[in-house]
């Protein structure tokens, strides 16, 4: 079986007159954690948004090049199907405020009108929450609204919601940037466990986080892919001078 699940080929993205992504080609490995790091404004969020076509929400965005999931071009697929295969967790926890915890987990099914039996729902809710490390904390409050949860718990609820759709790829867009250190550590542990089941692509501006949880790291700077390789190599013997300078915090 091919080790690459997702391939980006000569991707260029511009929003209005600004070129955000410049000719990026890279391939992501199956069931590994890949971190995309770089200073603010380097295009890392735009890059992951292109992967599940969320960039289409931003007007005046022009994309050229291709992204393939198992050799199928996602730009030729229905965006709705793309987003079911490639889940996303955002910077700020965004559980649905009007839904209970239970409904939040299966929101993807409820909102898409996919019918599930009672037992299918129960199983899905329990397994997704367990995978997100939240089951023990909320199992007695499943039918309450999620507003009383802490930020870190809400973010894990969002991860459970994304996992419930059984995606092949999970995109995490700075998932811990709005969280306290303890919740951050919890989510980092979780990411390491999740790669057993799903391919993870994680955007981070935190160098330490990239080195702790990822197998592969890509360094983006000003819209260019400067360097991409195993986290071990990139953090110990980077090829590019800019990577070295970024890692020693001379900029960014």
């Amino acid at each position: 079986m091919n080790k690459h699940i997702l391939e980006i080929d000569r991707l260029n993205v511009s929003i209005g007159a600004d070129k955000i992504i410049k000719d990026i080609s890279m391939a992501f490995f199956r069931k590994k954690v890949t971190a995309i790091m770089g200073p603010s404004g380097c295009g890392k969020t735009t890059l992951v948004r292109c992967i599940n076509r969320m960039h289409e929400l931003i007007p005046n965005t022009v994309v050229t090049g291709s992204i393939t999931l198992y050799r199928k071009n996602i730009y030729e697929m229905n965006p709705i199907m793309v987003r079911r295969e490639i889940g996303m967790v955002f910077q700020r926890p965004n559980p649905f405020p009007t839904m209970s915890i239970y409904d939040n987990v299966i929101a993807g099914y409820l909102l898409n009108g996919i019918k599930l039996t009672r037992s299918e729902k129960d199983t899905l809710v329990e397994s997704s929450l367990a995978k997100a490390g939240l089951w023990n904390e909320v199992k007695d409050a499943l039918h309450r609204r999620g507003a009383f949860l802490s930020g870190g718990q809400q973010q894990r609820l969002c991860i459970a919601r994304a996992l419930a759709m059984k995606p092949r790829v999970l995109l995490l867009d700075e998932p811990t940037s709005a969280l306290d250190p303890k919740s951050t550590a919890h989510i980092e542990d979780l990411i390491s466990e999740l790669k057993e089941t799903v391919t993870i692509i994680m955007v981070t501006h935190n160098i330490g986080q990239a080195s702790r949880v990822s197998d592969f790291t890509a360094f983006l700077y000003l819209g260019e892919l400067v360097e991409y390789g195993t986290t071990e190599k990139l953090f110990t013997v980077p090829d590019d001078k800019r990577t070295e300078e970024y890692l020693s915090r001379k900029f960014g």
């Binding site: 599940n52 969320m54 929400l57 709705i80 199907m81 793309v82 987003r83 079911r84 889940g87 996303m88 955002f90 700020r92 965004n94 559980p95 649905f96 405020p97 929101a107 993807g108 409820l110 909102l111 898409n112 009108g113 969002c158 919601r161 994304a162 759709m165």
Partner: peptide
């Protein structure tokens, strides 16, 4: 805006996102 993103990110079509979220 994050609520709309959450829904669309789950593969929910635009009209359902509007009506249901």
């Amino acid at each position: 805006h994050s609520l709309k993103e959450a829904s669309l990110g789950l593969g929910v079509p635009y009209y359902r996102t509007m009506i249901k979220i």
